[in-house]
Design a protein around this nucleic acid. Structure first.
Lengths: 154, 154
DNA sequence: CATATTTGCCCATGATATCCCATAGTGTCC
DNA sequence: GGACACTATGGGATATCATGGGCAAATATG
């Protein structure tokens, strides 16, 4: 299970290529699929990134044990799995962002990768900075809950 | 599980390298990841340090079973995991503080490592001294509660 | 079928980080 | 008290990363 940490901003060249930060690449299994999965967030103007294993788990959760799913789950499947793209690394560790993904996040010449543990996000830098400040304020008000969260993991 | 104790101030050279105190290094598992994780505190102008296992637990707690998390947890993931960096030891036991981490803590030429048990903090020395005095005063007013705290830990 | 357009691979480059060695100060052990 | 071990620190050499351009195969377009 990968652990995506840190925030990095990289350039998107005219071909739509972006280097995935090494910190993220080295967190992926060396012997698995050499690439990532990206899908449009339906909550923010950003992309969600994950490894293949995570998406398989997600697919399992949505479908349930018998492949019969509710309307809500079908909606989830459409929103997430439908917009998901499998993005392979080129020999230099870059991915090619497709036009629809870039449009959804408003990405043009730069992309910010934000590690969130098991997943990460890809943002247009200015949009992320605004989002980050909001999230930071929210985190401060919830700081008191950090203790319980950690203890739960023990 | 590491136990970080004591306070040490070390020099930051012009490349941004700092020696992690031996007391901290030897507390880490010899056969695990050779390095630490550091992230920006959203409460103080300092950095938090922890070992990899601690961050994995934190990531698990924040994500829950599914990977779709609450707004509060997403905010925490942004503030903590987004600012976290995996800092490997060089052969001499030093880490490389990235520019944004140094900026957050106001660190320039020296860094103070403060052991807090399972985690530790990294401060700009003068800022820590000021913080320490405040904490000390606070501790005195709470002295009556120390007994119960110790008993609880037994 | 000829011609654009994309897609992926290979190489070159500058910036950065990593490794390796050298030194000085400190404490430890005979 | 003197030799030794180890930590902290600094500098120079080397490897790695992010980035851009060019080329060729695959695909689309007329």
């Amino acid at each position: 299970m990968p652990l995506f940490l840190s925030t990095t901003t990289n350039r998107v060249d005219r071909k739509g290529r972006v280097s995935v930060p090494v910190a993220f690449r080295s967190s992926l299994p060396a012997s698995g699929y050499q690439g990532i999965i990206a899908y449009a967030s339906f909550k923010h103007a950003c992309l969600h990134g994950a490894d293949l294993g995570f998406m398989e788990q997600l697919s399992d959760s949505i479908h349930g044990d018998f492949g019969l799913y509710s309307d809500e789950n079908e909606a989830l499947a459409n929103a997430i799995l439908g917009s998901a793209r499998q993005l392979s690394f080129d020999p230099e560790g870059r991915i090619n962002l497709s036009k629809d993904l870039m449009d959804h996040a408003g990405i043009t010449s730069e992309a910010t990768f934000v590690g969130l543990g098991k997943t990460f996000q890809i943002w247009e830098p200015a949009a992320y900075e605004a989002h980050r400040l909001v999230q930071l304020a929210l985190a401060k008000t919830k700081a008191g809950e950090l203790g319980p969260i950690i203890r739960r993991g023990d």
